[in-house]
Write a protein that binds this DNA or RNA. Sequence first.
DNA 1: GGCTGTTGCAACCTTCACTGTTACGACTGT
DNA 2: ACAGTCGTAACAGTGAAGGTTGCAACAGCC
Lengths: 144, 144
Amino acid sequence: MSANSRLTIAAHALAWIGLYQRQGHEVATSEQIATSANTNPVVIRRLLGELRRAGLVESRRGVGAGWSLARELESMTLLDVYEAVEPGPLFAMHRTTPDQGCVVGHGIQPAMQSIYEGIEGTLRRELARVTLENVLRDVLAASR
Amino acid sequence: MSANSRLTIAAHALAWIGLYQRQGHEVATSEQIATSANTNPVVIRRLLGELRRAGLVESRRGVGAGWSLARELESMTLLDVYEAVEPGPLFAMHRTTPDQGCVVGHGIQPAMQSIYEGIEGTLRRELARVTLENVLRDVLAASR
DNA sequence: GGCTGTTGCAACCTTCACTGTTACGACTGT
DNA sequence: ACAGTCGTAACAGTGAAGGTTGCAACAGCC
């Protein structure tokens, strides 16, 4: 499994914006978030752009521009973030269609498809149980 | 999530070997399995090699060589296969360590780590609930 | 109206994992 | 000795993701 870090970085960005706003600031810049996440501002802007399309954050342009939360952290779950940044399914089928003349080749895809759907449903329910507020609380707990 | 098909192909191969043995054959060749899965025999040999290291299949060399199951399909779960072919974690941390001077940068990794561990545990329990016998039954059911 | 700081986005490179392919040595029953 | 198959190395192709640069668009401020 080529594990990617998009969900992690997205959660990082949201937690950062949320904390920054609680400290009284209006908006956070991709530059600031990128410094905290130790990556490039464009990477953050790309990710936040996907979160904006999902309705989780808003952006402002011009002088004093930056990013702000579109909803409270309590109302965002890791599932919202996951769906915003991870389009594809967890497990993939064969890259080329198997031999349909073979019993196994013919039946394997529907069989695995239904199994995978059940597992992905469970994964989604787990992700939906964790809010970004939970994440931020854990983050702050780790620093003490 | 760059979904890969390793788990699917491995399940395909095991179901194929299992069915072939039930039809009275001793061993299956990587050539036969590759034809059914519409891929290259070397790909199958590489995958089955990992399953052999996990104790799920055995191979025989020389004339009349090939692959056979090391255990009954009932006693193999998708978790066994998953662990054999997918080494890494489901979700990754940052590629570079975040800014430890920042509260979020410092706390985000332990926070996400513990969340991810819980989710991966659930995923594993789900995978452990499906045996390869279940898979083969579903495969045969789809052909009717 | 011009200046400034930031987003939005395109373009490109690098890295990485996986797949596909070729080649060939190792092994073993006949 | 032969033939068939595994075991494995080596390499090319593919695609996703991250990293980087560059620049137009935008909006507040002087």
